[in-house]
């Protein structure tokens, strides 16, 4: 919502005018090849081109974390990344969390601890949590808070989310030592 009269103070959409570019990447274990507008964000590529609506748009400016996905093992805000930056990347979205019709331990713990209310921040929250647990299977409370500090939630007060991540970490460690 900008002052369209005051050009210097205003965002104005300028079409890139560039021809479509090929994009090859892997999303949730599936190889994708598409011709895309080089100005397209990764968020728009997931939602508009691939119709993966699990990843949410909350602000389009990297402040709320609702669009978080995992790119090459790191949690990233997909609204701040151009789709072509994901060339050759491995992307995991919320749709890629469960395997063979079974929820991941993390998803199960979010349900059990009620780490969600309206559910709109949940996909991004799950991806930040998964990225954390993948690199640090035994996080402290402060490490969990740090990992999800960029994911805003207006409903839960975060406590139930933190509990869900900690108990998922515990169960995942147990599953690893038993298996």
């Amino acid at each position: 919502m900008c002052d369209h009269e005051v050009k210097t103070n205003c965002f104005e959409y300028i079409d890139s005018q560039m021809p479509p570019v090929p994009l090859e990447l892997n999303v949730n274990g599936e190889s994708i090849y598409e011709l895309i507008d080089p100005a397209m964000t990764l968020l728009d590529f997931l939602r508009v081109s691939l119709k993966l609506f699990g990843t949410k748009e909350g602000c389009r400016e990297g402040e709320c974390g609702a669009c978080t996905v995992i790119m090459n093992g790191r949690a990233v805000p997909s609204c701040l990344i151009l789709a072509i930056e994901a060339q050759g990347a491995d992307i995991i979205t919320v749709e890629g969390l469960s395997k063979n019709g079974e929820l991941s331990i993390l998803q199960q713990e979010f349900i059990k601890e009620d780490g969600l209310q309206c559910g709109f921040c949940t996909p991004g929250m799950l991806m930040s949590a998964k990225a954390l647990l993948d690199r640090n299977p035994n996080p402290t409370v402060d490490e969990v808070k740090e990992a999800i500090a960029g994911n805003l939630c207006r409903c839960t007060g975060y406590k139930s989310i933190i509990n869900a991540i900690l108990s998922a970490a515990k169960r995942e460690r147990e599953a690893l030592s038993n298996g």
């Binding site: 748009e57 469960s98 559910g119």
Partner: peptide, 19 residues
């Protein structure tokens, strides 16, 4: 008991008007 719609929400299948 667990939230009735939790499954849809943790799998990204819950569709909002946004979607």
């Amino acid at each position: 008991p667990d939230r009735s719609e939790a499954l849809e929400k943790v799998t990204g299948r819950a569709a909002y008007v946004h979607d």
